[in-house]
Design a protein around this nucleic acid. Sequence first.
RNA 1: GGGUCGUUAGCUCAGUGGUAGAGCAAUCGACUUUUAAUCGAUUGGUCGAAGGUUCGAGUCCUUCACGACCCA
Length: 502
Amino acid sequence: MSDNDQIDNESGGLDDQIANRKKNLESWRAAGIDPYGQGYHKTHTASQIREENEGLEAGEEGEEVSFAGRLMTRRDMGKAAFLDLGDRDGSLQVYFRLNNLGEESFKRLDWVDLGDFLGVKGQVFRTKRGEISIKVSEWTILSKAVMPPPDKFHGLKDTETRYRQRYIDLFSNAEVRKTFVVRSKIISAMRRYLDSLGFLEVETPNMATLAGGASARPFTTHHNALDLELYLRIATELYLKRCIVGGMDKVYEIGRVFRNEGISTRHNPEFTLLEIYEAYSDFEGMVKLTEGIIGTICKEVLGTYEVEFENYKLNLEPPYRRATMDELFREHAGKGIHEIRDRETAFAMAKEAGLDVNPNKSTLAHCIDKLFEHYVEPHLIQPTVVTEYPIELSPLAKRKPDDLDITERFELFVAHNEVANAFSELNDPVDQKGRFEAQAANKDIDDEAHPIDDDYVQALEYGMPPTGGMGMGIDRLVMLLTNSPSIRDVILFPLLRPRAQK
RNA sequence: GGGUCGUUAGCUCAGUGGUAGAGCAAUCGACUUUUAAUCGAUUGGUCGAAGGUUCGAGUCCUUCACGACCCA
């Protein structure tokens, strides 16, 4: 009895709100109704009801429907009440009226709290004030929310709670839900496009004894039965190219990769990467394919090539501007790429620019990367295909036939962000082995150096056809297309440091 | 790793070293077409944590935790 005494207290603290909600829950049970009910036959979603009854005049009645959703707001008026039920499309107003429901059914509204799930049946109509609504003739509770939802108007703002308890963010902030719907549509449009071109979606290992294909530190894990140290993949590249060796010719994978590095508005330790490989193609083919993918997504998902991101108005309609790294460095740094490929020159420039690169601890490649980031990237706003990367930056790319220090590679930049990276794949096993060895030689100053993958080299020894390959970071693409300033806005459950014990 | 900012009621936020506030939510009441419903009343606080300065700290100082943004 002492518990019930507390429940009867009038107050507004969290414990009391929970107690009141539990009391309401018990009222349903006492009436013989399970407040955590069974499935409910919905004939329509909120947006379907709106669309199908658009033609209704104020006061006019439409079809009979059943509908279900979460109670978002309610306006009680004595012997009538208006409730807004939210489903994934939005929300719909439902109208409860004593005369339509009878005493017993109407009275049960007292046991309903914001956040509860309700199922309703009734006739669609348009109110005096023009709102499409349902005149409820029959209804039930489908699930009880014992925790109170956030502010009905302001939603949930606290970033930490939004990320830690994303479910609250999703049900209380419609625009957040929208972002993740768009994300899903982007990925499915991407799949549809690639499938239509005859690409085969494949799955390669998440765990392996080597983590190659990119410059990044891996996560480690352990397989007990084999007593084996394993790495989580940092890229899908080397396995996908083994598929090309195997004759699969056109493959892609949309997969999670894991990189053991810092967290920022543009980095989450696990993120989603698209990689594509096409036999008998090359980096020029990959330019076309990249343009095709982005163009198709804009057309099918956004319905426009015009996109706003940060303060930029971007036009993503292909084809995109092309520029060589040499041209861009000349334009923005006053020196060409062949000059910059000299260690002394590169590090002197970096020092002059105030960049944090130490000649004793950084590779030339890393230094050039930093210089490009500093001098050139800020200028790459509209989509730009940057070509002719020096060989130091591209250990898996084929050399340009007329300039062996330059590779057949491009990166696509939009709004000074790298969106895609592609090249003609290096298929000469001897050259590949040499590049791996050059990477390994830097191991002491570069903990992100590619490891030597002898099995991969052996695969090339069996022969890999000339191949074009491309990688695209899905999260950053979604950021761009949804105008999201942080990668955490496009990842449902981003990694956060655990909260201290209360 | 460094810097700046933030952490106050369930939510959104005010708060000048001197009695801890508002709106929403909650509770009670009125209202049979409202829509951030309206109207009346009531309740709700370890001010992120721990120290310190002070007659007195949400407010000033130190450390810590978590987060946001910027830099590396």
